[in-house]
Design a protein around this nucleic acid. Sequence first.
DNA 1: CTGAAAGCGCTTACAG
DNA 2: CTGAAAGCGCTTACAG
Lengths: 341, 341
Amino acid sequence: MAKIDDVARLAGVSKGTVSNVFSQKRPASKTVTERVLKASRELNYVPNHIARSLVTKKTMAIGLTIPHGNFFFSAFHNQFINGVVLEASRFGYRVLLDMLPAQEVKTPSLASYPIDGAIVLGPTEEDERINLLHQNGIPFVTVGKIFNSQVESAPTVNNDNARILHDICDYLIGKGHANIMFLNANERMTVSIERKTAFFEALAKHRIALREHMLHYKPSVHSEDYLNYGYEETRRVIGEMGERVTAIIADDDRTAFSAMNAIKDIGLRIPEDISLFVICGDLSMMHRTAPPLTGMDLQPSELGVQSVRLLMHKLGACEGDYQDNMVISSTIVEGDSCSTI
Amino acid sequence: MAKIDDVARLAGVSKGTVSNVFSQKRPASKTVTERVLKASRELNYVPNHIARSLVTKKTMAIGLTIPHGNFFFSAFHNQFINGVVLEASRFGYRVLLDMLPAQEVKTPSLASYPIDGAIVLGPTEEDERINLLHQNGIPFVTVGKIFNSQVESAPTVNNDNARILHDICDYLIGKGHANIMFLNANERMTVSIERKTAFFEALAKHRIALREHMLHYKPSVHSEDYLNYGYEETRRVIGEMGERVTAIIADDDRTAFSAMNAIKDIGLRIPEDISLFVICGDLSMMHRTAPPLTGMDLQPSELGVQSVRLLMHKLGACEGDYQDNMVISSTIVEGDSCSTI
DNA sequence: CTGAAAGCGCTTACAG
DNA sequence: CTGAAAGCGCTTACAG
């Protein structure tokens, strides 16, 4: 690979001038610019991104830090990433998919991240990724509330999870449901905590007592049960224990599908016997299932776009006003999976 | 941020020794190691990844180059990326989502990529990304065949697209279909060309003449029609032109859904009136639609895993034998969307 | 508008 | 097992 010295020599100018022609940080005469460009073309020269980063302290990449391990992108993440990549590219930034430990200890050999900022997906309680980012002085935005003792607050883009659970419960209870089973996300995720609290509140508001086995948490991604989360729980609670359940709230579409399988295996029907509500689903898919699923439109793509924009503000790459805590609105999209009792 | 000199000074050793404690490239005495680690902890020191990369010429990141513009990840890409990220992390590599122009001209300010290698998704004819990678001497693997005049061949992971189209046509023709409309991927993609050729061959094999309007290509992502590809074509050909069509092969699930909408709007049913076959779909979703879709299992996650592994071989990060052209097998998964005439 | 020189924060032969 | 010094390929004040 040709380097800047080669071009400078061939064009008969100094390295600084070559640098300048590419970065355009100070004016250059037309003749010199052309000589440099010509020499670069001949030598197939392209500036070395790493060397540039070392001095400018900018990598022009943002990290999307996802929990380490057998993490699986869902349809929700898919749309989220679409939003992130598109918006980041508008600012000239690339996106680094970064698997950082959420709970594990950092290894001493872990080098500082070659990123200018980060978006933390699905924060957990005492999220180690957030401590790491904080310690390393890397600006970051979280998608979801944080509960870290070392880091008090951070710019956050989030849905109004409490409101969402209230809306869902009001919706179901309004249809006459009092026996609602909630298949929540992983217990360590802050979103689960926000949801759980609101779930309790909503039930209490309607004077419904929460019975045992009506709240479950998605197992760790390392667990064997991860991919089938919802199946066992539904079978056991409804089928074996004979617990009275008329509605199920499922964290995401995968969970909803698992629950659907269980319901079918038990010999019950949706929505005649059991109503099903999905929180994080892909709208285009939800309309296609049998029956079409009723669920929440969380606007995952918009979450992605706004989290990038917030981060860009933090990096000084985006002008204008902004606020540190953005809430993305969400609405119920009705299918045919919830019926009135 | 503390740097290596600070640690060296505090620990009373040379920079080289500090470097060595972190890289472990040569043995270090226990006492020195401990002194360095202690000093690092006190100063909150982490090696600078960029500076390290500049001298080692390794970034420990691979690029996933996706076409520039309004690109949308589909369920297929989603699973593909899952495979890529998981396998890359096994080798200590991160994944950079890179939007490079597929057809556009490179800007002179484009710096060399801070990646050690790249995976090129959905290559097109004369793919500019491939020329760029080639010119910059960056090892790459393509997912799909390449047709570039400047680059003769490249390590490739692919499905057997010709075989797939033959299988699909045999399957449909075996069910009595002779009027098959094919909603192919974008015309510039090499996969489309492979499929088209095989589609023609398969029809010819069964002495079926290809009629006009029976082959369509997905518009560019920049087109307004991108998201609804399949709807207009189906409505026009079957509804308005009254062309006899008994089966449709759809590129991916989004296309299949659009076709389903059109079929419904025309007043026809699946599979009674029209059979529908989807090539790139998400299996867990395909089982859930109404009716369940019949389609191909392309093993997108396995495509991702194998493309990373092939690239790792190219980078010398993976030992053992390997071949430059890997074919991932695919099988027909039956739903209820194709019927016998 | 252009050049010479220092420096970004590491790693790596080369000695010892 | 450890150190001193050169060098990775750029950018950036500082002069002119």
